[in-house]
């Protein structure tokens, strides 16, 4: 299980990265943490002709606040987000919880936020979180910079809206109000594995019931999805066990999961119902 031959470049700034990507087109592949790319190269499933290693582009490693938005540089390691204080408020706690679910410690110190989003594994935490929070994904190419809404970004399994000449440079997330509460629940058979199904929710309970409910699911198809009918069930209602059950049922109706050896379509749909209810319960009880 040795990877096929490739050429290697290690540029030091974004402009150079984009220049190389433009020059080589389909042959090029960005190497960030490599925790998904390198295994697939070792299996010879991925065969890039040229690896563009961005680990030397230190300018891509940052977490910044800009008004009511948090900007996450693509090279931010998963482990940096495990610290809830890295990002203020409930968003920081949500990101820390999600980060903790990413693989294992040696994977988290190496793997990157942007790399995971660009890899677009339908079970990946950051892809689900991006869809959950309507992240804006910033792609930089020789024709400049463009913003892609998360839901448009993920096309299908391992496939995104990124062009071969583009670098995913940043992901922008909205700061959540202090009153927001989240729930993040995964089901996997073994510690640290990709979730068979994951469910994440954000709710904000006001005097008129739940405002801005968000429900996103992973492991249910080619991309992470928003459970819009579940959100509709939740919006404007007071939290209750019954409401959460109804929302979870709606979420299960929102998906048409693909089955594989890790779980049939039927089982995944069942898990969506269970995990979404648990995520909502967790959100409701989050202090």
């Amino acid at each position: 299980m040795k990877p096929p031959r490739f050429e290697y470049r290690a540029p030091s700034d974004v402009e150079e990265v984009v220049g190389i990507l433009t020059e080589v087109g389909d042959e090029g592949k960005v190497l960030a943490g490599g925790q998904s790319l390198v295994p697939s190269m070792n299996f010879r499933l991925a065969r890039p002709g040229l690896l563009v290693d961005i680990n030397g582009v230190k300018a891509l490693d940052y977490i910044q606040r800009s008004g009511d938005r948090i900007l996450i540089g693509t090279l931010t390691r998963h482990s940096c987000l495990e610290n809830a204080a890295a990002v203020p408020g409930p968003l920081g706690r949500l990101l820390a919880t999600a980060a903790h679910h990413v693989g294992h410690m040696p994977i988290r110190v190496r793997g990157t936020f942007g790399g995971s989003v660009a890899h677009a594994d339908p079970a990946a935490e950051w892809c689900m979180v991006s869809v959950l929070l309507d992240a804006e994904i910033i792609a930089v190419g020789s024709r400049g910079r463009r913003t892609i809404p998360a839901e448009d970004f993920f096309r299908t399994v391992f496939t995104t809206a990124l062009e071969p000449y583009e670098l995913l440079s940043e992901v922008i997330l909205p700061v959540l109000p202090d009153s927001a509460r989240f729930g993040f629940v995964e089901f996997s058979r073994r510690a640290g594995d990709f979730a068979i199904v994951a469910s994440s929710v954000v709710i904000d309970v006001g005097s008129n019931g739940i405002i801005n409910p968000r429900v996103a699911l992973a492991g249910v198809g080619g991309t992470p999805v928003r459970a819009r009918s579940a959100e509709a069930v939740l919006a404007g209602s007071a939290p209750s066990a019954e409401l959460f059950r109804a929302a979870a049922d709606a979420a299960a109706g929102d998906v048409e999961p693909m089955g594989d050896i890790h779980g049939s379509s039927e089982y995944r749909r069942h898990l969506v119902r269970v995990l979404t209810r648990r995520a909502l319960e967790r959100a409701a009880s989050e202090a």
């Binding site: 295994p39 299996f43 058979r189 073994r190 510690a191 640290g192 594995d193 990709f194 050896i261 890790h262």
Partner: peptide, 28 residues
């Protein structure tokens, strides 16, 4: 509880990595 090699009906082995075939970790 964990380990199973799976073939499809054409006789292709579907479990060819340690992400598909699951020896338990200390957590299990």
């Amino acid at each position: 509880l964990y380990e199973e090699l799976v073939y499809d009906s054409d006789g292709n082995l579907l479990t060819t990595s340690l992400m598909d075939y699951l020896p338990p970790t200390i957590a299990e």
